[in-house]
Design a protein around this nucleic acid. Structure first.
Length: 430
RNA sequence: UCCUCAGUAGCUCAAUUGGCAGAGCAUCCGGCUGUUAACCGGAGGGUUGUAGGUUCGAGUCCUACCUGGGGAGCCA
C-alpha cells in the first residue's frame, strides 16, 4: 500500500492507503475502537471494527497507549462525525513500539512540568503549530531578502570582543585566550555589505543578562540585514515591507496552524504598509499624557512600549532616540546631533520591540571619537575603523528578533514557546 | 540582582480553628458498535520540596535553605 501523509488525505478518498505515525488519543467502545493518529502533517481518526480485522490486530489495539508508534492500513472515506471530515477504516495495523505511560495527558499541566518535558511537549497540537509557523516565518524572511538581491553572509558565533560594549556576554576559553559568544552579527555585516552591497546574517545570538521576563531568552535568533548607501528612511521602508511580507506569508500558508492557536487573524490582516512613524519625542508626548513614570531622555520601559503600541493597529516605528542612550556606532542626525538616526519597531497588542536598527557612522574621526567616549578597546575595533578608511559610504541596517516576531504572530504570551529548546535563566534542560 | 506567589499521588488540584492523606486524569482489570478531554464498575499508587523548631498532636504555625511560576530592571 502507498504510504501517504495525513495532509494529503483528501486525495485518497475511497482508496486503501498506509499511514505511519503516533497514537494521539484512543477511545474504546468495546467492539469498536477509535484511534486518533498524528503523523506530523495532521491528525486523523481511524476506526477499528472488531469484525473487519483479524483477532491479532484487534487485540493489538488493547495494548496501545498514547504516543505509541504504529503503521495502519485501511480505506479512507468522508465522514462528518470525524474530526477533519475524513476517517480511515482500518484493515491492518502494525505496532512499532508500545509507548510507556505518557507523562503529558490531554488534561491540563503546569508550565514547569511542561518545560521539564519540552522534548515531548513539542508533539502537542499547539507546539506543533508554533514550530511550523516559526519555520514559515524564517523561510519568509529569507525569501524576502533573497528576492531583493541580498547575499547571506554568515557571521561568527565566537568573537574576540563585545559588539556593542557593555552588555553582559557569555565568555569562553579560546585556547587560553578570552572569547565571547556573539550578541549581534552587525559589525561583521557592515564589512560584508561593503563587498556585496546588500547582506544579511541569520543566526543565534547570546546575552548573559539575568533577564527573567516573557520577552527574554539567553539564546535567541536574529535576522540582520545591512545595506550600503542606505539611510534611515531606506531601512525603515525595508523593515516595514519585510514585516508585511512575513505576516502575509503566514496568513496564506499557515492558516490551519493559526486556527489551532485560536489566533484572531483579523488583527494580522490589518498589518499593511504604511506603518505609523513617530519620533522619540512624539512617543514621549503620548507617554506623558498617559502618565508614565519614565523620565524623558531615557529609554522606554516595558509598560511604555505597551502604551505606545496600543495606540495603533499595526506596528509603530519610533525613530530618532537621544544619542546618549544608544549604541556608539549610530549616526547622529544632521539637524540635531543630540538625536541618533535610529529606529525601533514596536509590535501591536503589547508585544513590544521586535526590530531595532540605525544608520551607522561612516566618518572615521567621529567613529573613533565614539569608541573613545564609550571606553571600548581600540585594538579590537581596528578592523571596524578600517571600514571607514577604504571607500566608506553611508549604510544602515536592522536586527529582527525571530522569537518575538513568532510570539506576536502566533499570539502567545511567552517567547519560551517560540523555539524548540529555549535557553532561559535557570533552565537549560532539556 | 530585587519584589512577589507557590511546592501534597506520574499530572492538575482539595484537605474547615493545628486533630484519620482525598478527588479527577493517567496506569492496570472488567463492560459497552459512533466516540470527540467518551462513559460505567473496580484496583494499585504518598518520606505533604529539604533541614530544624513550637506543640499532646503539624500538609497547616515559625526559621533557614532548595526548586519553580509571575513581575521589575536590561534588551531583540
Amino acid at each position: 500500500m502507498p504510504h501517504v501523509y495525513i495532509q494529503d488525505i483528501a486525495e485518497h478518498v475511497e482508496k486503501e492507503v498506509t499511514l505511519k505515525g503516533w497514537l494521539y488519543n484512543k477511545t474504546d467502545k468495546g467492539k469498536l475502537r477509535f484511534l486518533l493518529i498524528r503523523d506530523g502533517t495532521g491528525v486523523i481518526q481511524t476506526v477499528v471494527f472488531q469484525k473487519n480485522v483479524s483477532p491479532e490486530v484487534f487485540q493489538a489495539t488493547d495494548t496501545l497507549a498514547q504516543e505509541s508508534s504504529l503503521v495502519v492500513t485501511g480505506t479512507i472515506r468522508k465522514d462528518e462525525r470525524a474530526l477533519g471530515g475524513f476517517e480511515m477504516d482500518v484493515r491492518n495495523l502494525e505496532v512499532i513500539q508500545v509507548a510507556d505511560s505518557y507523562p503529558i495527558s490531554p488534561k491540563e499541566h503546569g508550565t514547569s512540568f511542561l518545560m521539564d518535558n519540552r522534548h515531548l511537549w513539542l508533539r502537542s497540537a499547539r507546539q506543533h503549530s508554533i514550530l511550523r509557523i516559526r519555520s514559515e516565518i524564517i523561510k519568509a524572511c529569507r525569501d524576502f531578502l533573497d528576492d531583493r538581491g541580498f547575499t547571506l553572509v554568515d557571521t561568527p558565533i565566537i568573537t574576540p570582543a563585545a559588539c556593542e560594549g557593555t552588555t553582559t556576554l557569555f565568555g569562553l576559553d579560546y585556547f587560553e585566550e578570552k572569547a565571547y559568544l556573539t550578541q549581534s552579527g552587525q559589525l561583521y555585516n557592515e564589512a560584508a555589505c561593503m563587498s556585496v552591497g546588500k547582506t544579511y546574517c541569520f543566526g543565534p545570538t547570546f546575552r548573559a543578562e539575568k533577564s527573567k521576563t516573557r520577552r527574554h531568552l539567553m539564546e535567541f535568533w536574529m535576522i540582520e540585514p545591512e545595506v550600503a548607501f542606505a539611510d534611515l528612511d531606506d531601512i525603515m521602508d525595508l523593515a516595514q515591507e519585510h514585516l508585511c511580507s512575513i505576516v502575509q506569508r503566514v496568513l496564506t500558508e499557515r492558516t490551519e496552524e493559526l486556527k489551532v492557536l485560536e489566533r484572531d487573524t483579523t488583527l494580522l490582516e490589518t498589518i499593511q504598509s504604511p506603518f505609523p512613524r513617530i519620533s522619540y519625542h512624539e512617543a514621549f508626548d503620548i507617554l506623558e499624557k498617559e502618565g508614565t513614570q519614565t523620565p524623558r531622555g531615557s529609554d522606554f520601559g516595558g509598560t511604555d512600549e505597551t502604551i505606545i503600541s496600543s495606540q495603533f493597529d499595526r506596528p509603530v516605528i519610533v525613530h530618532r532616540f537621544p544619542t546618549a542612550i544608544k549604541a556608539f556606532y549610530m549616526q547622529p542626525d544632521g539637524e540635531n546631533p543630540e538625536l541618533a538616526l535610529c529606529m525601533d519597531i514596536l509590535a501591536p497588542e503589547g508585544y513590544g520591540e521586535i526590530i531595532g536598527g540605525s544608520q551607522r557612522i561612516h566618518d572615521y574621526d567621529l567613529l573613533s571619537e565614539r569608541i573613545e567616549e564609550h571606553h571600548l578597546p581600540r585594538e579590537a575595533f581596528q578592523w571596524y575603523l578600517d571600514l571607514r578608511k577604504y571607500g566608506s559610504v553611508p549604510h544602515s541596517g536592522f536586527g529582527m528578533g525571530v522569537e518575538r516576531v513568532v510570539a506576536w504572530i502566533c499570539g502567545i504570551d511567552h517567547v519560551r514557546e517560540t523555539i524548540a529548546f529555549p535557553r532561559m535563566l535557570y533552565r537549560m534542560y532539556p
